[in-house]
Amino acid sequence: MNVDFEALHRDGFVVLGGVVPGAMCARFETDLEIIGRAGLNHRGRSQREPDAIADLLRLGGAYRQALFSNLKHLRVVQEMGHHVVSTLETAGVLDWLGYEALVAYPTIRADVPGEDTYLLPMHQDYATPCRRAFRVWATLRPAGATSGSLLVVPGSHLRGLIAHDTSDPARPFVPDSAYDSSGTRLLELEAGDGILFDPLLVHGSVPAQNARMKYNLLVNLWDLTTLADPDDPEDPIAGRVRMRHVRDTVRG
Rank of each mutant, 00 (worst) to 15 (best):
D4Y: 02
D4F: 10
F5M: 05
F5G: 02
L8K: 11
G12W: 10
V15N: 03
G17S: 12
G17N: 08
G18I: 02
G18A: 09
V20H: 02
V20W: 02
G22T: 04
G22N: 01
C25K: 04
F28P: 10
F28S: 06
F28W: 12
E29R: 15
T30S: 15
L32Q: 10
I34T: 13
I35P: 05
N41D: 15
N41A: 15
H42L: 15
R48F: 07
E49F: 09
D51T: 07
A52Y: 04
L56T: 00
L57S: 09
G60I: 12
A62M: 08
Y63K: 05
R64L: 02
A66K: 11
S69E: 13
L71T: 04
V76P: 10
V76Q: 03
V76A: 04
M80D: 06
H82D: 15
V85M: 03
T87Q: 12
T87A: 13
T90R: 13
G92F: 11
D95L: 09
L97V: 03
L97T: 13
V103L: 12
V103R: 09
A104V: 04
P106V: 10
I108T: 01
I108G: 00
R109F: 13
R109Y: 13
A110S: 09
D111F: 07
V112N: 06
G114K: 03
D116F: 05
D116L: 07
Y118C: 06
Y118A: 13
P121T: 11
M122P: 05
M122W: 05
D125H: 01
C130S: 08
R131E: 07
R132T: 03
V136E: 08
R141K: 11
A145Q: 10
A145F: 10
T146L: 12
S149P: 07
S149D: 02
L151G: 02
P154N: 06
G155N: 07
S156W: 06
R159F: 03
G160S: 02
G160E: 08
I162V: 14
I162M: 01
A163T: 13
D165P: 01
P172A: 02
P172S: 07
P172Q: 01
P175L: 09
D176E: 14
D176W: 09
A178T: 09
S181D: 13
S182Y: 00
G183Q: 02
L186N: 02
L187K: 04
E188L: 01
D193A: 07
I195P: 12
D198T: 00
P199H: 09
H203Y: 10
H203I: 00
A208F: 01
Q209N: 10
N210A: 11
A211E: 15
R212C: 08
K214R: 15
N216Y: 04
L218Y: 14
L218V: 14
L218S: 14
V219M: 13
N220Y: 12
T225A: 11
T226M: 03
D231I: 01
I237G: 05
R240G: 06
R242S: 14
H245Q: 15
R247F: 00
D248H: 08
D248V: 02
G252F: 06
G252H: 12
